[in-house]
Design a protein around this nucleic acid. Structure first.
Length: 368
DNA sequence: GACACGTGGGC
DNA sequence: TGCCCAAGTGT
């Protein structure tokens, strides 16, 4: 990597901030520096693109205009507001943190990185973003943009996928961040990272800081940032049971931890669990699998059903680390079935409209 | 420190 | 299609 002199740092600050003053994006959460606005937007923006967040942010502020309103809202209303945005623990942590502020801290915001990090769902990046933007603290906010921008500007070849790399970047950026406009500086870096210095197809030729971009000047821009690869999603096959009675569906609530925690879906049975009922799973035919599925549902759920394939291709849904392949089956069951052993209940379409559903369940509904 | 945790967009 | 990326945090 290279290092900048004090005068190069001053030049960079001025060039960046002048560009930001004239070209910074006009975003809904930039209308003021209210910590509630900054905080909610930063949580929504975690691993999520700006254009996706904008409508969610607008609706969220209309529903929950203050941290007190958020702290007091019922969970179902909160999750409905977050429906489709993903990483749902963000929403639960958001309310947890709101209650920390309202109940434990009498409505007062922590104003330092250390204090902010004690809030649920606020890590080193978000704490730095709130501290610098809302409270004018001269601290870095190192997100994916900052990693990429500074890795290219200074040809930093540390692997940004490794946790310890963060502190190295924070030290480097701490020397460069201007004491008087830290929030604008951090946001300018993000705007730069999403315009001229993008991950793919960067346009450094026209970038306001191209003279400072060592990787570009050396023709090795796309070698930065260095980032080790993550494993591919693991495929998991499920049977999805469609049990309908009038305008109600028999739905299953997922466990309170793990993927899509607490969400309602059609009952999903892992094919591996079904095949485990056979002593020779590798020899099981398609017809036998359905018989085994009926056996599984009887044993595990206490439901006697007859399943019929619904036709069409299986529904695929990919998460960060899992790919679900769901074969839909119509299962006959009566509404007065004994559900004592089944972790779910009948839900009407009206009830389903009121609760948040994950995208994968929306895909399943679209197929029936 | 490695992995879990959603969804949508771009090529 | 498959893969990578997008304003990360919790465990």
């Amino acid at each position: 990597m290279i290092e900048w002199s004090a005068s190069q740092i001053r030049d960079f600050q001025q060039t960046l901030l002048t560009w930001y003053d004239n070209n910074g994006r006009d975003l809904p959460w930039r209308r003021d520096h209210d910590p509630y606005h900054v905080w909610v937007s930063e949580i929504m923006l975690q691993q999520t693109q700006v254009n996706t967040v904008i409508p969610y942010y607008e609706r969220f502020m209309a529903l929950f205009p203050t941290v007190e309103a958020l702290a007091a809202t019922p969970e179902a209303k909160l999750m409905k507001a977050w429906e489709g945005l993903g990483y749902y623990s963000r929403a639960r942590n958001l309310q947890k943190a709101a209650r920390q502020i309202v109940n434990d801290n009498s409505g007062q915001w922590p104003q330092t990185v250390e204090g902010l990090k004690d809030l649920a769902g606020v890590g080193p990046y978000t704490a730095g973003a709130i501290a610098s933007i809302a409270f004018n603290q001269p601290v870095p906010a190192v997100d994916g943009n900052a990693f990429r921008v500074f890795a290219r500007l200074l040809e930093i070849d540390l692997d940004i996928a490794k946790p310890q790399t963060r502190s190295a970047f924070e030290k480097i950026i701490a020397r460069i961040i201007p004491q008087d406009r830290p929030g604008d500086f951090n946001q300018a870096i993000m705007d730069l990272g999403s315009s001229y210095m993008t991950a793919k197809n960067p346009d450094s030729k026209h970038s306001p800081v191209k003279a400072f971009n060592q990787a570009y000047l050396d023709g090795v821009e796309l070698q930065y940032p260095v980032k080790s690869k993550k494993p591919k999603p693991v495929k998991v096959a499920y049977f999805g049971l469609v049990m309908r009675h009038g305008d109600q569906f028999l739905m299953q609530q997922r466990p309170s931890g793990g993927l899509l925690a607490n969400f309602w879906t059609f009952p999903l049975v892992a094919e591996d669990d079904v095949l485990a009922l056979s002593e020779t799973p590798e020899l099981v035919t398609d017809e036998e699998r359905l018989t085994l599925l009926e056996q599984y549902v009887r044993q595990e759920f206490g439901l006697t059903v007859h399943v019929v394939p619904m036709g069409g291709k299986p529904v695929k849904h990919t998460f960060t680390h899992r790919q679900w392949v769901i074969t839909l089956l119509a299962a006959q069951v009566t509404a007065d079935t004994d559900l004592s052993y089944f972790p779910g209940k009948w839900l009407s379409t009206a009830a389903l409209d009121k609760i948040a559903l994950p995208k994968v369940q929306e895909k399943l509904f679209a197929r029936i």
